[in-house]
Design a binder for these strands. Structure first.
Length: 569
RNA sequence: GCGCCCGUAGCUCAGUUGGAUAGAGCGUUGGCCUCCGAAGCCAAAGGCCAGAGGUUCGAUUCCUCUCGGGCGCACCA
């Protein structure tokens, strides 16, 4: 049972003893001001109305009947009726032992143990290399997975490859044109094609790998491709070329993500895992049978406006075009219901802001199919405005101008890039100045946190070299840690599990990043003013234990962000 | 026109399901290495939390409106 849970029980017990009704919710917070104690509750304030008593009177009753606890040194009533709790220094010092014993598990919990989560992020179209905003989504998504797992959830991370439909066809046609150009044919890029240089490079690779020397060789090659099967409305050879390009593109994306430290449990192909299995047609039939879809003007429409009180869309949406082909939406409903919900009871999708108009209809469809509204969550990751020396850089795959995620990794580095993305809320637009990030890389807050970790390991190394390593477990007298800064550090470490729990519940990994900066910000000054390695052996061992715990928690926190915790820098 | 997100220090951003005196980094100014790592520490300056109402014991936080910025509103994905 956590400390705040024990405190809550104590309040309940006190209220009972005082003959007062139980507090509906007894929330504990850590006051900003140290003078206000280590924990404070507003229970008396929230209870005042129901109990028809002044809050301070209730607070007095709570304090008077509060059961004795080894954790608590004293209580105080403050302001309009807060009950402030001051922890007992002896108990705090001993609590450090619990943190050290928990080690890697300090911060973990099991309140999400019942959840099977399907977490989709990045899911960039296979029509070009990954760009900066993908790096942001990757950092957030990967950290979310780590957070949810830390609190017990079973998480499957997923990258959904949109390798079908209009965009795929545009890519296939563009790629074919580039291949033809590569062997010397004079053909123009299709009108809605992708002009990016990456397709030129890729076409060059294709020609080289297939040893296509000149237009005749290409024609013969394309003729052989025509004989093989295809599923889109494209000429078969064009589609085959497109498939090859997509496979290469996805492989490139996968490789960059891996270099970033992000791997996915599931790579879903729209073509193979949804369309080829006929899931879309099955879904459209099912929706029609359930009366959730209707025909009009030759198209099949979903009753978005009539489904789900909160999820209601503002207009009905097309599931199947007059041409007979399912829309992206139609496919997506089938995919969400039969693929994603097949082995998960909670879906979390990270999408770009351009998708936000799309969320309502998918949510409506999921509710109509019987999934509770809270089982489908969408996090809109806002755009990254990339600056170079203060000047905005346009990022458009279609115009072929962008800064690649790969380049970001080279210029800024994996840890600094991830940490920077994770020190912003996902829903606030982000300005990322490459020049500044590169020039000031040593001022990046990530190094501040990592430096504290490296410093701690340096101390431990020196202690070990001097034969001062701490004795086998339990022999350290932690009560030596009575200094206010030491007490404050331990209390901070004790907060960590609650911070992780809150970040996982709110799906906000940035809370971890900020908290780590605060922890490092408490450790560095402590280090400056307190000698760890020193003559007082008892105090030294206790301080070594404190440092070890701080290092351990920093490492645990950085791990939740997917950032390394180096022992030397 | 309708909908969503955002507006907090010069800049980039936090602000714990509404809590007590709104914080950090960068930048600026001034100090600190014969002593466990100066990627560090100490100090100063910097705010009408866009604005106006409302709910509340209490509002940066919730509601309404106004202003300002971004993004969506396809038988595209």
């Amino acid at each position: 049972m956590s400390l705040t849970e024990r405190l809550t029980n104590a309040v309940a017990s006190a209220l009972g003893a005082a003959g007062l009704p139980p507090a509906a919710d007894c929330a504990w917070e850590v006051p900003r001001q140290a003078e206000h104690g280590d924990y404070a509750t507003n229970a008396a304030l929230t209870l005042a109305r129901a109990a028809q008593r002044p809050p301070r009177q209730i607070a007095e009753a709570i304090v008077r009947h509060f059961p004795a606890m080894p954790e608590v040194d004293r209580l105080e009533i403050a302001g309009p009726g807060f009950v402030n709790v001051f922890l007992a220094p002896g108990w705090v010092a001993q609590a450090l032992g619990g943190i050290l014993a928990a080690g890697e598990r300090h911060g973990r919990g099991d309140e999400l143990a019942a959840q099977r989560v399907r977490l989709e992020f990045v899911s960039a179209n296979p029509t070009g290399p990954l760009v900066i905003v993908n790096a942001r989504a990757a950092a957030i998504g990967d950290s979310l997975a780590r957070l949810l797992r830390a609190r017990g959830a079973r998480v499957a991370t997923e990258f959904y490859v949109n390798d079908a439909g209009t965009q795929f066809e545009a890519l296939a046609r563009s790629f074919e044109a580039r291949v033809r150009q590569a062997v010397g044919e004079s053909v123009a890029l299709p009108e809605k094609g992708y002009p990016g240089e990456y397709l030129i490079d890729l076409a060059g690779e294709y020609v080289q790998e297939h040893k296509l020397e000149g237009p005749p060789a290409l024609s013969a090659h394309l003729a052989t491709l025509e004989t093989e099967g295809g599923v889109s409305t494209l000429p078969r050879a064009t589609e085959r070329l497109g498939r090859w390009a997509v496979a290469r593109m996805v492989e490139g994306q996968r490789r960059v993500l891996a270099a970033y430290g992000v791997t996915f449990d599931v790579w879903t192909s729209e073509q193979h895992d949804v369309r080829d299995k006929g899931l879309a047609d099955r879904m459209l039939a099912e929706l029609t049978a359930r009366g959730l879809a209707y025909e009009q003007d030759g198209a099949l429409w979903f009753r978005s406006t009539e489904v789900g009180e909160e999820a209601a869309d503002d207009k009905d949406r097309v599931l199947r075009r007059r041409s007979g082909e399912a829309t992206y939406f139609g496919v997506d409903v089938a995919y969400h219901h039969w693929v994603k919900f097949a082995d998960a009871d909670r879906l979390i999708n990270l999408l770009g802001p351009d998708h936000h108009g799309y969320v309502a209809r998918i949510r409506a469809a999921m509710q109509a199919l019987g999934h509770p509204p809270e089982a489908f969550e969408v996090l809109l990751v806002q755009l990254v405005t990339l600056l170079r020396d203060g000047q905005p850089v346009r990022m458009s795959k279609r115009r072929g101008e962008f800064v690649l995620m790969e380049e970001l990794l080279e210029e800024v580095g994996r840890d600094a890039a991830r940490f920077t993305f994770l020190t912003r809320r996902h829903d606030s637009p982000l300005e990322f100045d490459l020049a500044v990030a590169t020039r000031q890389s040593s001022d990046n807050p990530v190094y501040y946190v990592q430096y504290a970790h490296a410093r701690i390991h340096s101390i431990a190394r020196q202690a070990a070299e001097q034969g001062l390593a701490s004795p086998a477990g339990g022999a350290v007298d932690l009560t030596a840690l009575s200094d206010p800064q030491e007490q404050a550090l331990i209390k901070r470490l004790l907060h960590f599990p609650e911070i992780v729990r809150g970040a996982a519940r709110a799906l906000e990994p940035h809370r971890i990043a900020f908290w780590l900066q605060e922890l490092a910000g408490a450790f560095h000054p402590y280090y400056k003013t307190h000698r760890v390695i020193q003559d007082d052996h008892r105090l030294m061992l206790a301080r070594l234990a404190l440092c070890a715990a701080v290092g351990r928690v920093i490492a645990n926190g950085l791990d939740l962000l997917g950032v390394a915790a180096p022992e030397t820098m």
